[in-house]
Design a protein around this nucleic acid. Structure first.
Lengths: 229, 229
DNA sequence: ATCAACCTTCGCCGTCCACCGAAACGTTCC
DNA sequence: GGAACGTTTCGGTGGACGGCGAAGGTTGAT
């Protein structure tokens, strides 16, 4: 596959790591989070303009991936390969000590975001679906495999509405509090709707929080989805 | 143990990799060989003075180790950790395509070097003893464990003379043809002497070649030592 | 003792690049 | 529509460093 690395290619990777500011940014992202440019600038201890230049280089070097969302630009490691490199060089790593946005606990746990599920629950669901191969990232966005739909039905979602999910397009959406991906787009909206219909979740009387029912939490557990803590 | 790597430390490693000339040198050493400065300069495509400066930086950065031998200065990777880093970044690597010194086949296979065994056989023996934990590298040089002496006796060496080996100091000696370590110093001399006495090896009528007997090759095989090819 | 081989140190030049502040651009909120 | 915010682009300055050739030191050969 990848032919033996040339000295030039190895040097290019080295050069990207060679600046403390860039190294700090990469280490801040090693836990798989996606973070906006300003936050990475603070983590690296440099000005915004300097950070922007570094991020551009890391992006063009293929070490980072960019996701534009409103006026934020979220950066994350480009792939598992990159994460593996960094972990080989910097093995022991405590999970990110920074949950910067202060928010209501219920809101952090689960909320709606453009009518789809976000927060810890949404992030955990997305990660679990990806992990089991039920969800795939294509050039066209996120796609749910039929096997994934079957698993959802087995966990208790309505069969008829769930059957339509594999035809819908999902959009990876960076979570405001968790800095990780969850499922948005038409797929995310429909999936969340099915969960509301099944009574796994209900809207809080006011605000954007979504309240999982005890039964809902059990159903999520069947899918391997657990809330932290 | 090693506390989580700081951005500065990661950047330092990156900076050492960041120059194509240094990267080429490291890649040339990834197979575990030790090579003189001039050869590395040619491999990197730079002048001798430039190469010297690069090697100095790699040495001070802890990525390389130096072994002075006569008018040659042999550089090799500082440890398994460094090799692991490089392999993580540059996975597929063909074994070094360069056996530069042209020499008689018998001489390459086994010869005496300051009265100890060198050549492919000496290198293979040293590697095997290290691999099995029979030989240890201490700050004082190479030391044979009693268990190693027992293994040698089991393979057929004289018990009385072998028993004295763990008290002798060995010196790592870079092989002229193989560019790898073999056992020199008093330990190497005594070990080779025991093998000559046991008839595993005999001196060629002229020249420095050592000729292993058929029985000797079988005995080496008992120790896990095989010749390539 | 002299010479050649190997390697390092020194001095010089040119290039690359990290950093910041100011300004421009795009998005969101009021 | 305008203000506030997040981010990138531009311009300028200073330091770090890679490259080479020449000189110097050490080792081994004649």
């Amino acid at each position: 596959m990848a032919t033996s690395l040339t000295p030039h290619q190895l040097a290019e990777i080295g050069a990207l790591l060679a600046e403390p500011a860039r190294a700090a940014m990469l280490l801040a992202l090693i836990d798989g989070t996606a973070r906006p440019a300003g936050e990475l600038a603070r983590a690296a201890g440099v000005g915004a303009s300097t950070a922007s230049a570094h991020l551009k280089r890391l992006l063009e070097g293929g070490l980072l991936a960019l996701q534009v969302q409103g006026r934020h630009r979220y950066y994350r490691l480009a792939g598992d390969e990159v994460a593996a490199w960094l972990e080989a060089l910097a093995p022991p790593r405590k999970p990110a000590a920074v949950p910067p946005p202060t928010a209501d606990a219920a809101l952090r746990r689960a909320r709606s975001c453009y009518r789809h599920l976000a927060g810890q629950l949404g992030v955990a669901l997305c990660a679990q679906l990806l992990d089991r191969g039920h969800l795939a990232t294509t050039s066209d966005g996120l796609v749910l495999h039929p096997a994934g739909a079957e698993a959802l039905v087995a966990a208790g979602l309505d069969a008829a509405s769930t059957a339509r999910l594999p035809g819908l397009r999902g959009r990876g959406c960076v979570d405001w509090t968790e800095r990780r991906l969850h499922v948005g787009g038409p797929l995310g909206v429909a999936l969340t709707g099915a969960m509301l219909d099944a009574g796994w979740l209900r809207h809080a009387p006011q605000g954007r929080a979504l309240l999982p029912s005890a039964e809902g939490l059990r159903r999520f557990g069947l899918l391997g989805v657990r809330l932290p803590g």
